[in-house]
Design a protein around this nucleic acid. Structure first.
Length: 89
DNA sequence: GTTGAGCGTT
């Protein structure tokens, strides 16, 4: 089990610092990043947070999943591995 | 408005 968290349905007004501040309340945030569009540079409406441990990650899920942030009800869950870049279509 | 991004050789 990984300790990466997927945060979906985020408001465009939310940034990486906002996510970090939210998740650090439940544990140590190793890293956090908003999924910005590579070609547009704009937020895609979701992000990822790397917690120090899975235990802290679970606490963050229970504490932040389903909550409203920036007017949007965010969805927090364990992220899934990203496909290999070498396997581009 | 929901599973990133980067590089051409990790």
């Amino acid at each position: 089990m990984n300790n990466k968290l997927f945060v979906g349905n985020l408001a465009y007004s939310v940034d990486d610092a906002t996510l970090r501040d939210l998740f650090k309340q439940f544990g140590d945030v190793v890293s956090c990043n908003i999924a910005t569009d590579r070609e547009s540079g704009r937020s895609r409406g979701f992000g990822f947070v790397d917690m120090q441990s899975q235990q802290e990650a679970e606490s963050a899920i229970k504490g932040l999943n389903g909550t409203t942030l920036g007017g949007r009800q965010i969805s927090v869950s364990i992220s899934q591995p990203r496909p290999k870049a070498s396997s581009r279509y």
